[in-house]
Simulated scan of single mutants.
Amino acid sequence: MQYRTVTDMRGKEVVIPSEPQKIVAISRSLIDTTMYTFGVEDRIVGGSVYDKPLQTGQYVWKGTDYTVNT
């Protein structure tokens, strides 16, 4: 397995697999929207939960309709 080093939001370097197979999205909307955009949403295996009511947004990417809860 190959790895790469990335810098997280705190400025800390973190080593991760080059091709992650499972992702837990701890920030709603940005991460899952980006993963839908790149067609790898099936790798999301968990996520955080907000107490706030969900708002639904819709967009089209390459002719496919998507709905994102933010």
Rank of each mutant, 00 (worst) to 15 (best):
M1I: 00
M1G: 00
Q2W: 00
Q2G: 01
Q2T: 11
Q2R: 04
Y3C: 03
Y3V: 03
R4G: 01
T5R: 06
T5E: 05
V6G: 02
V6S: 00
T7Q: 05
T7F: 09
D8L: 05
D8S: 03
D8C: 08
D8H: 00
D8R: 09
M9Y: 14
M9V: 11
M9G: 00
G11S: 03
K12P: 08
V14I: 15
V14P: 09
V14G: 09
V14M: 10
I16C: 09
P17E: 02
P17V: 01
P17L: 07
S18H: 07
S18V: 12
E19L: 08
E19V: 14
Q21P: 01
Q21S: 13
Q21C: 05
Q21V: 10
K22C: 13
K22L: 07
I23V: 15
I23E: 13
V24W: 10
V24G: 02
V24L: 14
I26L: 15
S27M: 02
R28Y: 08
R28N: 03
S29G: 10
S29L: 06
S29T: 11
L30Q: 15
L30D: 02
I31K: 13
I31M: 02
D32I: 02
T34D: 14
M35C: 14
Y36I: 10
Y36N: 02
Y36P: 06
T37D: 12
F38I: 15
F38Q: 04
F38M: 00
F38D: 05
G39Y: 08
G39C: 10
G39Q: 11
G39W: 11
V40L: 04
V40D: 08
E41P: 00
D42L: 09
R43I: 03
R43Y: 07
I44Q: 02
V45R: 05
V45N: 09
G46F: 08
G46V: 11
S48W: 04
S48P: 07
S48H: 09
V49I: 11
V49W: 11
V49G: 05
Y50T: 14
Y50N: 13
D51A: 13
D51P: 02
D51K: 13
K52N: 04
K52G: 01
P53Y: 05
P53L: 12
Q55T: 02
Q55N: 09
T56E: 01
T56H: 04
T56F: 06
T56M: 07
G57W: 07
G57A: 05
Q58A: 10
Y59C: 14
V60W: 01
W61M: 03
W61S: 01
W61D: 08
G63P: 13
G63V: 10
T64N: 12
T64W: 12
Y66I: 13
T67P: 06
T67Q: 09
V68I: 14
N69P: 06
T70R: 09
